Amino acid sequence: MARIPPPVAAVRTAVRRGLSGLPADALVLVACSGGADSLALASAARFTGKRVGLVTVDHGLQEGSDRRARSVAAWARDAGFDPVRIETVSVAGLHGGPEAAARTARYAALSAAADELGAAAVLLGHTRDDQAETVLLALARGAGPRGLSGMPARRGVFRRPLLDIARAETRKACAALGLAPWEDPHNTDPAYARSRVRASALPALVAALGPAVLTNLARTATLIAADTAALDELAVAALAESRSGEGLSVSVLAGLLPAVRGRVLHSWARELGAPGGALAHRHVVSLDALVTAWHGQGTVHLPGGIGVARRSGELVRVVPAHIK
């Protein structure tokens, strides 16, 4: 029997682990752009014994993107994937820059396909390098622990089995299998922050600190994610304990650890209707000041036209004066 090339074996092992806990007859969908990471992922998924389908998303952002999608779909059908879907999406009217809008549209399409087909999981091809880039970008934005947690291995229907696999290994796996990956021009376009990090920032860090920096950044995300999950659980209990009358008890909030109190206030603001995309750190800091730095200040204005004030020892929702 021919020996399986080590990169191919590594990717297959990672995918088997990533699918643990799923029923034997579960349908698994692979999100595949045709790039090296998702091609290696898709090929490995075919060796798990699961029913495996494939979805490729056409964002319509590049000339010939429809041809690329049809080419990926044709390869998938020939390779035995079933079902095979092409999802065409539009980023028009979506919030954020081109990257964020494309991501929003892509995840919505993948979720809809999973729901329609009854898939138990959708596999995404993010690698250890992608995780390192995510952590570095979060650091640059001044993100808190949630941002520094990077991409989770599992969230809802989505699974990322390759987060411990280097991008170079997926390329080697494709070469060993005779697969010809598509090179996304967006990945080298300096207009995108992630492309600049990939082309310049991370190579500079590797040159200065050694190749282990990629692994260490990814490991940092894993460690912070575990701590964040623990704090989130404490915050759920603390929010329930803080409820009083029409709002939250200031005395209970004041007794919480700052990290827990911040999460409680953030969750409560979301409950009041503040949109998550617009709810910023400064809003939570202002709410916290009503608890810890009270000097008679007025209403805190949150996104969505929501006001919060301190009344009789409670934080309560009020109607902001400018919309009365």
Rank of each mutant, 00 (worst) to 15 (best):
Ala69Ser: 10
Val84Tyr: 06
Met151Cys: 15
Pro320Gln: 10
Ala92His: 01
Leu290Ala: 10
Ala237Ser: 13
Asp82Val: 07
Pro303Ala: 12
Gly96Ala: 02
Trp268Ser: 09
Val316Cys: 05
Ala238Cys: 03
Pro320Trp: 03
Gln131Thr: 07
Ala201Tyr: 01
Ala280Met: 09
Gln297Ile: 01
Leu234Ile: 02
Tyr192Glu: 08
Glu246Trp: 05
Ala140Cys: 03
Arg3Phe: 08
Gly125Phe: 06
Glu233Tyr: 07
Arg103Lys: 15
Ser286Trp: 00
Ala230Gly: 02
Arg155Pro: 02
Gly307Lys: 01
Ala108Lys: 09
Val285Thr: 13
Ile165Ala: 06
Ala226Lys: 10
Leu231Lys: 04
Arg219Trp: 10
Ser33Gln: 12
Ser286Pro: 00
Ala293Val: 09
Glu63Met: 06
Val8Asn: 04
Ala221Arg: 01
Ala238Tyr: 04
Gly313Pro: 04
Ala119Trp: 12
Glu133Ala: 14
Gly156Leu: 08
Arg196Glu: 11
Ile165Cys: 08
His301Trp: 01
Leu272Gly: 03
Pro203Phe: 11
Gly118Pro: 05
Gly255Lys: 04
Ala14His: 05
Glu116Gly: 01
Ile165Trp: 08
Glu183Arg: 10
Ala119Asp: 12
Arg67Ile: 12
Gly255Phe: 11
Phe81Gly: 01
Ala293Phe: 08
Val260Gly: 05
Arg198Lys: 11
Arg70Trp: 01
Arg263Thr: 08
Arg51Ala: 08
Val285His: 11
Arg106Phe: 07
Ser242Gly: 02
Asp232Pro: 06
Arg270Glu: 14
Ala274Glu: 11
Thr104Ile: 15
Arg70Asn: 10
Trp75Ser: 01
Ala175Arg: 11
Ala69Thr: 03
Gly150Asn: 09
Ala105Tyr: 09
Pro258Cys: 04
Val11Leu: 03
Ala208Pro: 12
Pro320Leu: 11
Arg261Pro: 06
Arg261Trp: 09
Gly277Ala: 12
Leu177Cys: 07
Leu117Ser: 05
Leu39His: 01
Ala105Gln: 03
Ala280Arg: 15
Leu248Met: 10
Ala212Cys: 05
Gly296Ile: 04
Gly245Arg: 02
Gly273Phe: 09
Leu124Cys: 11
Ile306Trp: 03
Val135Leu: 07
Pro303Leu: 13
Ser251Arg: 15
Arg67Val: 14
Ala92Leu: 03
Trp294Ala: 07
Asp232Gly: 15
Arg243Tyr: 04
Thr188Trp: 13
Pro275Trp: 08
Val252Ile: 15
Thr127Pro: 11
Pro185Ile: 04
Pro190Lys: 13
Glu233Ser: 13
Pro145Ala: 14
Ala100Tyr: 08
Asp288Gln: 10
Leu234His: 14
Ala237Pro: 00
Arg46Lys: 07
Leu162Tyr: 10
Asp184Cys: 13
His322Leu: 14
Leu287Gly: 04
Thr220Pro: 05
Gly305His: 03
Asp37Arg: 12
Arg106Asn: 07
Ser20Leu: 14
